[in-house]
Simulated scan of single mutants.
Amino acid sequence: MGENDRRLVPPISPMTARTVDVPPRAPGLAYEAKWDGYRVLLFARADAPHLQSRRGTDLSPGFPDILRAAAELGEEAVFDGELVVIEEGAVNFSALQSRAQRTGRRAEAAAAAHPAHFIAFDLLQLGDETTMARPYRERRALLEEIFTRHDLQPPWALCPMTTDPDQASEWLDPAWGAVGVEGMVVKGLGQPYRPGERGWRKLRARATAEAVVGAVTGPVTSPDALLLGRYDADGVLRLVAQSAPVTNVLRREIGRMLTPAGADHPWTGARFRSGWGTRDILDHRCVVPDRVVEFEADVAFDEGRWRHPVQARRVRAELRPDQVPKFGEPDPG
């Protein structure tokens, strides 16, 4: 057997992308839709199907529906792709997270209630051949052939791809974020697949929004980061976002405007995690919620909150807290 004729064994470190600010435009590039789900490698094998997370964790127990589809494919292959749960025409990240935590009968019940989809965008092995040394254009052609040959239906899905940068730029419209497309990944048509290498490029769709400063980390007079909230229909201030470290200019400006809050602040004694899915608790200081800031965020939005840290851009001194959209309401386009 040659170098490219061996069975891949999990875990494998997937090829990844570095973030860029401007869509690259050059001959020989392919653009894929970037989905808001779990990056996974799917080992389609009748005897031992396997689902691996980006960091190598075995996700198989939580997704028996995907394992069955992999076992029943009819040929051996290893796919790279995104795992999502789609409900009412949009990605439901919370349902995906919940499914990943279930096993056994609870996993089967969750699969029936919240079916998952595997969105394939690359091919690492087909039959006895390890295809990673092949250029992307050939791997993509083989991937499309598999979908055609087996007439694959849900839970299988083929990731949209184009070589037209203008068409791909549509995926940067925040409107796509409402259905779960959070941007694009750019790959060279001649690129091989190199595990662990940050050889691709990615852009996330971003939009601006407003929220009320409810608490800070660091000193109130010179905050490191902002905890941002919106009022719900009952008038309760709810956390919607945590900012990345603010710029020195904004730190000085907003530090002069903030006032430490008293014990009657709605977030007094609250415990906020430092990130989505983490257990670390933030050391925050409540402030009087009378200042509005504008921030820039990607479209990873779930249950009324932005999952990733946002970039606070400026104070909106002309806006009152009651002029900010309510918790759970869509932002104006």
Rank of each mutant, 00 (worst) to 15 (best):
1 M>P: 05
4 N>T: 15
4 N>A: 12
5 D>A: 14
13 S>K: 12
15 M>P: 02
21 D>N: 13
22 V>W: 01
29 L>N: 03
36 D>Q: 02
37 G>K: 06
41 L>A: 09
42 L>A: 12
47 D>C: 07
51 L>S: 04
60 S>T: 05
60 S>H: 10
65 D>P: 00
67 L>Q: 08
79 F>K: 02
83 L>Y: 01
83 L>R: 12
83 L>V: 12
89 G>F: 05
89 G>E: 04
95 A>H: 13
104 G>L: 07
106 R>F: 00
107 A>E: 04
110 A>Q: 10
114 H>P: 00
115 P>F: 02
117 H>L: 13
117 H>C: 08
120 A>G: 08
123 L>E: 05
132 M>C: 01
135 P>K: 11
135 P>Y: 01
141 A>G: 05
143 L>Q: 01
155 P>F: 07
159 C>L: 02
159 C>S: 12
161 M>Y: 02
165 P>K: 08
166 D>N: 12
168 A>F: 04
174 P>A: 12
178 A>I: 07
181 V>A: 08
182 E>H: 09
188 G>I: 07
190 G>D: 04
193 Y>L: 05
194 R>W: 07
202 K>C: 03
209 A>S: 11
213 V>I: 10
231 Y>M: 10
236 V>T: 14
238 R>K: 15
240 V>R: 08
241 A>Y: 02
248 N>Q: 13
258 L>I: 12
268 T>Q: 11
269 G>A: 04
279 R>E: 14
280 D>A: 13
285 R>D: 03
286 C>N: 15
290 D>N: 13
291 R>V: 15
296 E>G: 11
297 A>L: 01
299 V>D: 00
308 H>V: 09
309 P>F: 11
312 A>V: 14
316 R>V: 14
317 A>G: 15
324 V>H: 00
326 K>D: 12
333 G>I: 15
